[in-house]
Write a protein that binds this DNA or RNA. Structure first.
Lengths: 233, 233, 233, 233
DNA sequence: AATGAATGAGTATTCATTCAT
DNA sequence: TATGAATGAATACTCATTCAT
């Protein structure tokens, strides 16, 4: 019954999905839907909760144990994420497209789940930073921002990857692509070699050694000295 | 009048926003709204178009000329993006939350705008890769995926940054944070030093030299040349 | 201006005709319409009155003077009627199709005009009966009914004749056809030779000599000399 | 439910009848009306169809079998017609006043029904003419015109008869009156003794023997057999 | 004399929701 | 338990009508 609801909400959108259609697709009668799930809002909430739980569970299950190195944990988590969203595109659409955009009861629930994942990611980043025992000068806010960026990138890529013909294989590829995109930056940051806004010089790619801007100061340009500096760390 | 519509659509969502409410907020009467914008759909379309144009224009205006180095261009564009979304949170909400999720006339328009931006980013990445005259072995699909990741990260951060008390200053900070997050990874990739999935060793962060996974092969393991290279890493 | 209104009312119907359309067709602006004719109802009333007057006037003008024999008067009146309705189909449509069917202000006005014509026809019939100086035993109600029948027949034929390509010639033909249809019956009646419901015998057409039915008694069954009786058949 | 609709449409007219009013009069709620009849148009169509069928059926049932003489068939049909319209004045109003004047879906349906009746009448007239085995020189168009005249007369009288206090008795009377009005004329025509436009002589009633006008030529001037001739006048 | 701009009042239609069974 | 039948409440849209100019 929830399956029918998820499918319908994903396809039609919350507003355009009618209880009639859901009941019909579920093969039961409308009053029955009302018997179990007491209103459209509650029904949608149940969908959201179920999908959110499923997603969180899938990601949790995929993450390698806390002993593994941070990038490995992150990578495995991403693989789980992309695999899950590829497997349940309707569920993902409900979370990503519908729930976030329809008023408070739902947006809150999704936000909570997202927060959970973000917290996890944040901890990973922090842990990695700690592992590096460098002086990461990253404020909490910065770390949070990075987590948002990473999660946002993942979400965007999920939509993109689903656009093509998703497959189990592509989940791994997508995760690898995202790791490639993100990890070096994170690693640099954590090791105190931030990118800084160029000052007009011709070419300035990669993490420069200049002083950090805004709240992302790269205090210890430090590894500095370090030869060509263990890039990518 | 469009302002009122944008505000209402952003706050209530497309479905829940009633023409009555929009008209009242605009301080005019409903028939007048229908006189100029001829239906709810058209009204929403007009909002979407206006906001999309405004956003694209803002980003375009912010981007530094094509002579500037790629990271500089990207950075300035992001600053423009974050500044604009911070300045017009309702407009951004209409584009990001509402239009994308409500059926074809609208989703298409937003997708078109997004595509425009993604194309721009894609070109930047490709240009940077060319500048680096390395063998970037990045398939087109990979580049596209990276652009999606970057744009998705930016979108996510826009929502996050607006959550707090947005200010002009924060736009620059947010952009810098994202550059830090993203640029090193991009640079590594472009220079042929991709991150690769670890094989179980204890610590493996940053761009490893191992063979690339999936479609993101890092052919030239070559931190090789060494030289001052190694930037971005 | 009234022309535009008549045309529009005839084509769209009273309900579907919008003041905008009328004003546009008239080449003036809506407020001007309201300046002269103060509401939709009044505008429609004016149309009805104008067309009714025109029709009555046309018929009046066509009728030959009171000295002429009754059938001649009737015939000339019918010719006028058919000629007029053929010439102004929209006006006729307003009277016949629209005004009669839209609530009291209008139906009354049309009824009044119709009554005027019916009265005229009634008088003709009565006059003819008097001329015949027979004992016409026709109650007033009967005469009224006959007038209604004649007028109704004319109205129906007007619609029919306009359906084809109306022409001046056809007005005369239509009138003649109707006279043929009607006059013999009227004449028989007036001369006391009514048609009576057959009693089952095989063939009984035309004005029989049997007793009259209902309120249309044929008093003098055998007016005339009887003899040739069995007329009409 | 259809009853309520017919009543309301008849009383208020199609445009002014609101679904609210109909539902209220039917003693149900508006959505229920929409559940069964899916729109105002469809509801009106259903009314029209029902009333048209009822009328045609009533007339059909009333007509005496095809062996009966033509005038008898006609008379019985008219009696059925007047009885039915007297019994269901609202239904008749819907057909005669509303449906004919409101756009294509409806006008067409009524026209079809009318055509059916007119065809029937036409056949009766033609049959009668054949029975008379005279040379009826009536063109098809003339016969059609006569049928229109007869039907129009009947329609007009239906409205008139309903105006007074209709009763079962009056149906018979009205039918007789119309037969009196019409039959002699028809009979004369069919027997080749048409009325012709007078040439100015003082008195010229009834079927003259002069040449026929327009398309209603009276070929067989034939008071023919003489004898019973000269009737109708 | 004439109108561009604006609106109050009303209508068809839909949908989440609930009885009676 | 399960549903066919029914509805209250809300919404997009239209039109006759009027000021301010």
């Amino acid at each position: 019954m929830l399956d029918a609801a998820v499918t319908t909400f994903a396809r039609r959108g919350y507003g355009a999905a009618s209880m009639d259609e859901i009941a019909e697709l579920a093969g039961v009668s409308k009053p029955l839907v009302y018997l179990y799930l007491h209103s459209k809002e509650e029904l949608f909430s149940a969908c959201v909760r179920r999908e959110a739980d499923a997603l969180v569970t899938a990601v949790r299950a995929a993450v390698e144990g806390p002993d593994a190195p941070a990038d490995r944990q992150l990578w495995s988590g991403l693989r789980g994420f992309f695999a899950h969203t590829a497997e349940r595109p309707d569920g993902w659409a409900v979370l990503y497209n519908q729930a976030r955009t329809h008023g408070e009861p739902f947006a809150g629930e999704v936000a909570a789940m997202r927060e959970e994942i973000i917290t996890f990611v944040t901890q990973l980043i922090a842990a990695a930073a700690r592992e590096d025992d460098c002086v990461p000068d990253l404020t909490d806010r910065d770390v949070a921002g990075l987590a948002y960026a990473l999660v946002g990138a993942a979400e965007s890529m999920a939509g993109w990857a689903n656009g093509a013909e998703g497959s189990g294989e592509s989940a791994k590829e997508t995760a690898a692509l995202l790791m490639n995109f993100a990890w070096a930056g994170l690693a640099n940051l954590m090791e105190g070699r931030p990118w800084t806004p160029p000052r007009g010089g011709r070419r300035t790619s990669g993490a420069s050694t200049a002083a950090a801007p805004g709240s992302v100061p790269g205090p210890a340009p430090g590894p500095a000295s370090g030869s060509e500096a263990a890039p990518g760390s």
